[in-house]
């Protein structure tokens, strides 16, 4: 039983590390900001999920696992939003993106104004 758990945790950790390496490789390989955000988001969400799942399997049911779960929840809430904000800034300020429609929504979700990323 212990061996099965270690095996499972090892597979999860290796998968998570593979995704993180993929993210780092993508961030350094791509040249445009939006592509890089896409690559970095893989590591921030899926990579972290698998690494911490591996740690949770190693620890079993305990307080540590609960804290790790909270960390995962925090990352899954915060990191996609930060990616969204960075990509939105990039779409609004970069003049060489081509035609990208940027839709502004106000608080109630109504469409406020509409302009284009390229000037």
């Amino acid at each position: 039983m212990e061996w099965v758990r270690y095996f499972l945790a090892g597979i999860l950790l290796l998968l998570g590390l593979f995704l993180e390496i993929l993210a780092v490789f993508g961030v350094n390989k791509f040249r445009k900001a939006l592509n890089r955000i896409h690559a970095a988001a893989i590591g921030d969400t899926l990579g972290i999920l698998f690494v911490f799942l591996g740690c949770m399997v190693l620890r079993g049911f305990s307080m540590d696992s609960l804290k790790l779960f909270l960390v995962i929840a925090f990352f899954w809430l915060a990191s996609p939003v930060s990616g969204h904000m960075i990509s939105r800034l990039e779409a609004m300020t970069n003049e060489n993106l081509g035609e990208i429609a940027v839709v502004h929504l106000d608080n109630e979700g109504k469409q406020e104004e509409k302009d284009h990323g390229s000037v």
């Binding site: 809430l77 969204h84 800034l89 609004m92 929504l105 106000d106 608080n107």
Partner: peptide
């Protein structure tokens, strides 16, 4: 200024911030 281009009143960010 460039501040014009800064995302203001972003709905997704506001909902997340309300929670976080």
């Amino acid at each position: 200024n460039d501040r014009l281009f800064e995302p203001k009143n972003d709905g997704i960010l506001q909902q997340t911030a309300r929670l976080l």
